[in-house]
Design a protein around this nucleic acid. Structure first.
Length: 199
DNA sequence: CGTACGATCTGCT
DNA sequence: GCAGATCGTACGA
């Protein structure tokens, strides 16, 4: 049910990014359980990927956890105000990661609404990497957290996403990455497939 | 020590 | 559709 280390430590980060679509991201924080179906991911392929924080082997206090063995959370701040959540993959020393860009709310919807300061549920409310972390209560302090424990984890609930519902595209907001900005490393379920009774 | 800058979201037009 | 918000991090002095 809960994804094990072996899952995260697979070699092909792009394959993991695609496979994570339809898995369930869960948090148990402040005595509250919330979860959502992952609907959008992006792969960041280590030192040769110009869009990656680890490009060229860059290793700092911030991105240190990317170099750890797969199965941990890499949480960092973007644009000074948005917390972004990544899953660290591959083995120790290889800084691969998958950015979770969107989920579909599943458990603890009242809490998600409260955290997002929203009145009504809609797919939009957790679509966007900054919104995902806000909805699930993920904080910068959760950086480096072990994804096989009971605070922050991903489950396989055998939700089947039809192959033709998964779109592939180039990653968002990384124009500076030159030719790597064109890589088809983004996977997302089209919004027209996100109706409440789709899953 | 000072500064520039982002893997973005929101609200207003 | 676009500007503004807002701050940890990296890097140069």
């Amino acid at each position: 049910m809960k994804l094990p280390y072996e899952y995260y430590q697979q070699q092909d980060v792009v394959a993991i990014a695609k496979d994570l679509i339809g898995k369930v991201l869960c948090t148990y924080l402040d005595n509250q359980f919330t979860s959502g179906i992952i609907t959008e991911t992006e792969a960041y392929a280590g030192i040769q990927d110009k869009a990656s924080h680890a490009y060229g082997g860059k290793r700092t206090k911030r991105n240190e956890v990317m170099y750890h063995a797969g199965g941990k959370a890499y949480v960092y701040l973007c644009y000074g105000m948005h917390t972004l959540f990544n899953v660290v993959t591959n083995t120790e020393g290889i800084p691969h990661a998958v950015l979770i860009r969107g989920i579909y709310p599943l458990d603890g919807i009242p809490i998600i609404l409260q955290r997002r300061k929203a009145k009504q549920i809609s797919p939009q409310i957790t679509l966007g990497p900054g919104k995902v972390t806000q909805a699930l209560g993920i904080h910068l302090s959760h950086n480096g957290l072990d994804l096989t424990q009971n605070i922050l984890w991903i489950e396989d609930r055998k939700i089947r996403i039809p192959e033709n519902a998964i779109n592939i595209g180039k990653r968002v907001g990384i124009d500076y990455a030159e030719e790597d900005a064109l890589l088809p490393y983004r996977f997302y379920v089209d919004s027209k497939n996100l109706s409440p009774n789709c899953f």
